[in-house]
Amino acid sequence: MKFNIIFFILINLQAAMTIFNFNSESNLTNWRIVHDVVMGGKSDGNFSLNKVGHGLFKGKVSLENNGGFSMVQYSFDTKNVSDYSKVVLKLKGDGKTYQFRIKSNNNDYYSYVSSFETTGDWEVIEIPFKEFYAAFRGRKLNQENYPGKQMEMVAFLIGNKIAESFELELESIVLK
């Protein structure tokens, strides 16, 4: 019985993998903005650290010239994520819907996507890997969901098919 309890505790103490933990010393070099201006749109987003050291993704989505999205993405060296099963985001949104995106390989033309709604308060959003579907340019692809083997990029995207301002404050991105 004692062995079973210790084993259970060890399983539950499996270390989480931190993808990014924001603080006043955070280096945002590998974070970059991509928005619809690549297609002629006029959306405008930016990414910075706020006064308390949280990541701040904010701006305006415009539908002009067939636009309609803004995204911030973070690229990193390949991470083996096969020991994990979900993404855990600690953030404060603005009541709007966002997408969290994963790329297994930076060279893939598609991303694995899952949408989440924000409440306007600080919250923890947990998204199981199995909920991330493959998509390209807003279209779901006919292939398996995220296999959860490796990861090289994560991103937040807003594109709700309406013109709107947005603000998403980020504290951490962790795998469990």
Rank of each mutant, 00 (worst) to 15 (best):
S43N: 03
G45F: 02
T119F: 08
I162E: 10
I162V: 11
E169Y: 06
V37H: 11
F7S: 11
L157T: 06
T78S: 14
Q99S: 08
S172I: 01
I11E: 06
Y74G: 00
T78A: 12
T18L: 14
T97A: 14
L89R: 07
R101G: 04
E164L: 01
S172Y: 11
R32T: 04
G67Y: 00
S70M: 10
I11F: 07
E117H: 13
T29D: 08
K42A: 15
A16Y: 11
E164C: 01
N23M: 14
A16G: 15
N107I: 02
N12V: 02
N65A: 02
I9S: 08
D77H: 00
N66Q: 14
S111C: 02
V154D: 02
F8T: 13
K161A: 11
L175A: 08
R139T: 13
V154T: 04
Y133N: 13
V88F: 12
N46V: 09
L49K: 08
Y84W: 15
N30M: 04
Y110L: 02
E126P: 11
K2C: 11
N160K: 10
F57I: 04
M39D: 08
P147T: 03
V87D: 06
T78E: 12
L49F: 10
L28A: 03
Y110M: 07
Y74W: 10
D108L: 08
R32E: 08
K79W: 10
V37A: 00
D77M: 01
N21M: 07
K149R: 06
D94V: 01
N12T: 12
I173F: 09
S115N: 12
S165D: 02
G95R: 08
V88A: 10
L63Q: 09
V88Y: 06
I9C: 15
G93I: 01
N145K: 06
V52D: 14
N65L: 09
L28Y: 07
N21R: 12
S70K: 00
N65R: 06
A15E: 15
H35P: 01
G40M: 09
H35V: 05
S111M: 04
Y84A: 11
S172N: 14
F116Y: 09
K149W: 10
T18C: 09
F166R: 09
N23D: 13
I158S: 03
S75M: 03
I9R: 11
N27C: 01
V34C: 01
F7D: 14
W122A: 07
N50I: 05
M71G: 00
G40I: 03
F3V: 03
F116T: 05
V61R: 00
T97Y: 03
V52K: 15
L10N: 12
R101M: 06
E131F: 13
N107D: 00
I158W: 01
K161Y: 05
